[in-house]
């Protein structure tokens, strides 16, 4: 049997890795993947709490988070393609103007 806090610590570590990647990465696609990592960490804590309190609605929330993540991935990657088309770079340090 695994204590609940172990799952929460794992979820927190994943979230922290996501935040760190968001801060230190300069490739816009990798930054986007760090956001997915954060969402995964939150999902793990949802499922752990659902199992802890015997409430299935926690698992339903994981589905909603997945749907939002899928929609976000589709729109975000389309934005990345549009940015690359106009600026020819994926480095966020070089994407510093709202208008070309």
């Amino acid at each position: 049997m695994v204590p609940l806090s172990y799952y929460l610590v794992l979820s927190g570590v994943l979230f922290a890795c996501g935040v760190t990647g968001f801060l230190i990465k300069r490739n816009i696609i990798t930054i986007f993947m760090s956001i997915e990592l954060m969402l995964n960490g939150v999902n793990l804590s949802f499922v752990a709490f659902a199992a802890h309190w015997h409430a299935l609605s926690g698992q339903i929330f994981v589905f909603f988070v997945m749907v939002v993540a899928a929609a976000e991935a589709a729109v975000g990657l389309a934005i990345i393609i549009a940015v690359y088309r106009t600026r020819e770079t994926l480095n966020v340090d070089q994407v510093n103007l709202l208008k070309l």
Binding site: M1, V2, P3, L4, L8, V9, G12, A48, H52, Q59
Partner: peptide
């Protein structure tokens, strides 16, 4: 930050355990 969160979670969240299969989904 993550060490602080881990320390707080491990020391203050009691010893409740999540058993596998306790909540069949």
């Amino acid at each position: 930050g993550s060490l602080l969160v881990a320390w707080v979670l491990i020391t203050h969240s009691g010893t409740q355990e999540v058993s596998a299969g306790a909540l069949p989904g």
